[in-house]
Amino acid sequence: MKKTIYTVQALMMSAFMLSNYVQAATPTAESLAYTCFGCHGVNGNSQGPATPSIAGLDKNYIADTMQAFKTDKRPGTIMGRIAKGYSDEEIELVAGFFAAQKSNTAALIAEPKVVASMPNKLDETWNAQMQFALLDYLSSDKKTSVEVTSQIDIQTTNPLEVKR
């Protein structure tokens, strides 16, 4: 009799665990990605000045970058703290979402007239965001633990002095 009771308990336990497992499903790519908009902009098109646009970037590049932040291989001001909150599967979903989005920068490039009417805008935006990313990397106290594989000219204009 005792054995039967244990078996029933075990069954109930596993049913409970199973139901919890089912409920704790992986969120959709959209559920995950919508939470990024606060900093990276709607669909990953950042209004700047510093947070980079991530719309339309290569999926593997986004996923690799998230993984590098997650494992502290790439230093950063804030993304190291955020990336650790996501499973590998969730990182793939987020990367896929943003890779599929239309980039405002790309849209501007596709319209030469728009670019011609504001010749410095692309350069400024792109430069500033790239330099902020570089500065984020170089200013972190974790950078000594990172193997620098490419030669970076650190004598770029300090983007903090760029008036936006």
Partner: peptide
Amino acid sequence: ANRALEVQYAHSWFNNITND
């Protein structure tokens, strides 16, 4: 630089979340 960057990220966040 790290201190200054966080201010720039704060302002980026403000611009992006209000647009969102």
